[in-house]
């Protein structure tokens, strides 16, 4: 005879299973299964019409590692993502401190200002940047008026970077704000009291204590940036290939389309992300210690 406690535990387990089932089914169907398909595709090949041919091969991976088109795309995307993340951090940290240190009644409005752009579709906002950066756009209009003359601001990698930083900054600021808002600034006074100047107090106290926010923000910015293709297409002018652009092209527009190669690129991208993020966690948690 089961004790009352055992009966209760069993009942709790059944309830938990019922509650989790819909979510698990959803994830299995729309996340795990496609991932498995992509993984399998990455070892296949295609025919002249772009159909997937079920002949196991490692050729896709060989292609990616040997052809400079693909190798360069990986490096370019990684470098751009690192740059985007670092710049977002450098802009976002002071901004988050400013908001967290504002009078209570100002914090929510200031956070809202960060969030309001999300009410507009991302594509629309990126088109808006075209208007701002275009040769006959707003900035160049101003530059002309003050006599500097028009500059090529659009359709280059700089424009891509600007768009990426603009788009990702909120994802950096929000976790940073959460971490900094929890930070007790009395600790900075304590550090100063013990002889630390502002820089020392920041590096020894505030930085390690807000590291979880930095990690969360960096990961949130880095991951979507690595796979992005919209910004480099619309602001970068699609002159150079980023990972996302290549994958998108292989899946949709190449002649013939090449899903197996695209899948291999996607699988490798996930691996790269996994490795980079694990390295990052390692470094930052050492910092914390």
């Amino acid at each position: 005879m089961a004790t009352l406690q055992q009966q209760q535990q069993r009942r709790d387990r059944i309830r938990l299973a019922l509650l989790l089932t819909p979510g698990l089914l959803w994830l299995l169907l729309f996340f795990a299964l496609p991932l498995v398909i992509i993984f399998i595709y990455s070892f296949m090949t295609n025919d002249a019409l772009g159909r997937v041919v079920y002949e196991p091969t490692l050729n896709n991976y060989v292609t990616i590692f040997t052809q400079s088109l693909y190798v360069n795309a990986y490096w370019r995307s990684i470098w751009t993502s690192v740059l985007t993340t670092v710049i977002c951090l450098l802009i976002g940290y002071p901004l988050a401190v400013f908001i967290a240190r504002s009078p209570q009644q100002w914090r929510m409005p200031l956070l809202m200002l960060i969030l309001i752009p999300f009410w507009t579709n991302f594509l629309v906002r990126i088109y808006a940047w075209q208007i701002i950066l275009a040769n006959n756009g707003i900035i160049n209009g101003l530059l002309e008026i003050i006599g500097i003359g028009r500059l090529p601001l659009l359709n280059n990698e700089g424009a891509t970077l600007v768009g990426l930083i603009y788009g990702e900054l909120p994802f950096m600021v929000l976790p940073l704000y959460a971490a900094i808002d929890r930070f007790d600034f009395t600790l900075m006074e304590a550090a100063a009291d013990l002889g630390a100047n502002k820089v020392q107090a920041f590096l020894r106290i505030m930085l390690p204590m807000t590291m979880p926010g930095i990690v969360a923000g960096s990961v949130l910015v880095f991951i979507p940036t690595l796979g992005q293709f919209v910004v480099s297409e619309l602001l970068g002018g699609a002159k150079v290939d980023y990972l996302g652009n290549l994958i998108q092209r292989l899946f949709l527009r190449a002649n013939p389309i090449n899903w197996p190669l695209g899948s291999a690129m996607a699988v490798l991208m996930m691996l790269v992300l996994l490795v980079l993020i694990m390295m990052y966690f390692r470094v930052t948690s050492e910092e914390e210690r």
Partner: peptide
């Protein structure tokens, strides 16, 4: 504060938690 010859014991202690 960091150049003054005094030290403080804070009400909340303000120990560095990390």
């Amino acid at each position: 504060p960091h150049l003054r010859p005094v030290n403080t014991v804070f009400q909340s202690y303000a120990l560095f938690p990390h």
